[in-house]
Amino acid sequence: MGFESLPEGCVATILSRTTPLDTGILSLVSRTFYSASQSDAVWASFLPSDYISIFSRSVSHSSFLASSPSNKSIYLALSHRPIIIDHATMSFHLERKSGKKRYMLAARALNIVWGDTPDYWNWKTLPDSRFPEVAELVDVCWLEIRGAINTNSLSPNTHYAAYFVFKMIDPEGFLRYPVDLAVDISGGQSTPKKVCLDLNIDGRDVSSSLQGLQRPNMRSDGWLEIEMGEFFNSGLEDDEVQMSVLETKSGNWKNGLVVEGIEVRPKEAN
């Protein structure tokens, strides 16, 4: 007896044990598989258990569930593009292929030392940012940015990485000293990762301390990102992931950094 002869309910149960990507591929096997792949029960298994609460935290999507959409429609809405939640201080997104959770903490959700002092930081609107405000570095000699997220908010049994998302607009003061990035869980202390935040240092007068250091990558949305560190979320503990961007030792003045936020997303397998 082949798969084609299985009852649709049995096929739906099989699909619910796979992933959204696998379900899309298997829907091509037969009419029975296609019909089962549209089942609310299948897509319910791919949705996070707290998706109703997440929608309620979004002003633009809070009424979405009132139209009684299918579970597949809900999944596609959460995986199509990030939704803005928590008074525009965070965004939420599902990885389309796996259904794993990803969040970005907006600059307003981060603890930026002297962030509310206009002489040091300026809050502005940029049309290509997903958030209403980004933080623009005017001039500081002490760069300290910290963010945190609880592991209960993330998908369990998942390998995550945190990424600093930013731009450089005519930067000064970043070509002499590396910036320290770190990701720690519940008070643990890892060795900071030293990086160069300036993407275009080739051919410029660069300190030898920056040679060979990791530099940022360009994102599809036009922002730069650089990996801060990794962690595994077992889902068994109620822990806090603490993330930091620091350059506090040199005393040199810096400007031109524009911060959109810190994104925490599943780490892609190599």
Results as ranks from 00 to 15, higher is better:
residue 235 G to K: 03
residue 227 E to P: 00
residue 225 E to R: 06
residue 234 S to L: 02
residue 236 L to K: 12
residue 258 V to A: 12
residue 224 L to I: 03
residue 231 F to E: 02
residue 245 V to D: 11
residue 247 E to T: 03
residue 264 V to F: 05
residue 246 L to H: 15
residue 249 K to E: 15
residue 263 E to W: 02
residue 237 E to N: 03
residue 264 V to E: 04
residue 241 V to M: 10
residue 222 G to S: 12
residue 259 V to E: 10
residue 243 M to N: 01
residue 264 V to L: 14
residue 241 V to W: 08
residue 236 L to P: 00
residue 241 V to G: 02
residue 247 E to H: 09
residue 264 V to A: 08
residue 252 N to E: 13
residue 245 V to A: 04
residue 250 S to W: 07
residue 243 M to C: 07
residue 245 V to C: 10
residue 222 G to M: 14
residue 240 E to P: 00
residue 237 E to G: 01
residue 253 W to S: 14
residue 233 N to F: 01
residue 251 G to D: 07
residue 230 E to V: 02
residue 234 S to N: 10
residue 261 G to M: 05
residue 260 E to V: 07
residue 251 G to K: 10
residue 257 L to W: 13
residue 250 S to E: 08
residue 246 L to N: 14
residue 225 E to G: 03
residue 225 E to D: 14
residue 240 E to S: 12
residue 255 N to I: 01
residue 242 Q to N: 13
residue 256 G to A: 13
residue 229 G to R: 00
residue 228 M to S: 06
residue 249 K to T: 14
residue 246 L to S: 10
residue 232 F to N: 05
residue 220 S to E: 15
residue 261 G to P: 03
residue 229 G to V: 01
residue 229 G to Y: 04
residue 223 W to V: 05
residue 223 W to Y: 15
residue 258 V to W: 08
residue 238 D to M: 06
residue 224 L to S: 13
residue 222 G to T: 12
residue 237 E to R: 10
residue 257 L to H: 14
residue 230 E to L: 03
residue 227 E to T: 04
residue 221 D to W: 06
